[in-house]
Amino acid sequence: MEDTGTVVAFWILAALTVGAALSVAAVRNLIHSVVLLIVSFAGVAGLYITLSADFIAVVQILIYIGAIAILLIFAIVLTPRAGRLNQEGFMLLPALALAVLVAGTMIFVAFDTSWAISERDGFEETATAIGDLLLDKYALPFEIASVLLLSAIIGAILLVRPEGAEEGPE
């Protein structure tokens, strides 16, 4: 990827993503943290576009920003007395050390391995191909995923169901 536009876009997006992610861990207010998380998600979506994964990029925006961030906000708003602070617990230093270690190892591996880089260009159209793959080769995992989603919905509803709730709709 030597295209000037892509390179510039990559560096901007990379700075945005990593900067926002670092701020997510650093800011004190949880709501600010979630807002920065949204920025980080958007940056990752931009990186997907530079990787010519347009379908995944859009899905990233749709699911991560449109759904998961909202769920996180719900989790904060529905627990008003629990505090909105994003502070660290007693695990601060070990966690930091472990995180640096893991990330360092991965970076080292990334640079140390000689990857079998292919010479092909980015994908032309991914959505149709992904659809074909999902319904053909990965049909079974696809079905399992739908079952997983269903059980997650049912589980979530059962979990927050008030005790002694009457049967049927209110």
């Binding site: 949204i38 347009d54 379908f55 899905v59 449109g66 909202i70």
Partner: peptide, 22 residues
């Protein structure tokens, strides 16, 4: 001229939600 234009429309409109909440 996005190949996933329709999905893009929905996805971008989804950003409205956190904005309104904020």
């Amino acid at each position: 001229d996005l190949n996933v234009g329709v999905l893009f429309l929905i996805a971008v409109a989804g950003i409205m939600t956190p904005a309104v909440f904020i």
